[in-house]
């Protein structure tokens, strides 16, 4: 966290390639942590639809639950920062 705030301050930086961007100090580490978290986000939607449709027998219930999950995330970003 503290290291994030020391992310390199942009001066007149030359144009970077994708590889160059990942070589920035701390980039790989931040990238890996965010990646594992987002992999679970990628699984969550369909996993919830499948489980809740299986349990309740209803796509209306599965859709509402999936919607509730997304609606729940609305409060997450505004609370920090």
């Amino acid at each position: 966290m503290s290291r994030l705030e020391q992310a390199p301050v942009p001066h007149a930086r030359p144009s970077l390639t994708y590889r160059g961007l990942l070589a920035l100090p701390g980039a790989r580490r931040a990238f890996a942590a965010a990646a594992v978290a987002r992999l679970s986000f990628g699984m969550a939607g369909l996993s919830l639809l499948l489980l809740i449709h299986h349990a309740t027998g209803s796509f209306a219930a599965a859709g509402a639950a999936g919607g509730a999950y997304s609606a729940g995330t609305l409060t997450a970003p505004s609370s920090p920062a």
């Binding site: 970077l16 965010a34 969550a44 509730a68 995330t73 409060t75 997450a76 920090p80």
Partner: peptide, 25 residues
Amino acid sequence: CATAGALVPPAGAAMRAWWAAAAGG
């Protein structure tokens, strides 16, 4: 579901904020 959604950390926004600080404009 609503509880889980509310507690999920905003990893995407965090990563983009990191890039905005690190990569310049």
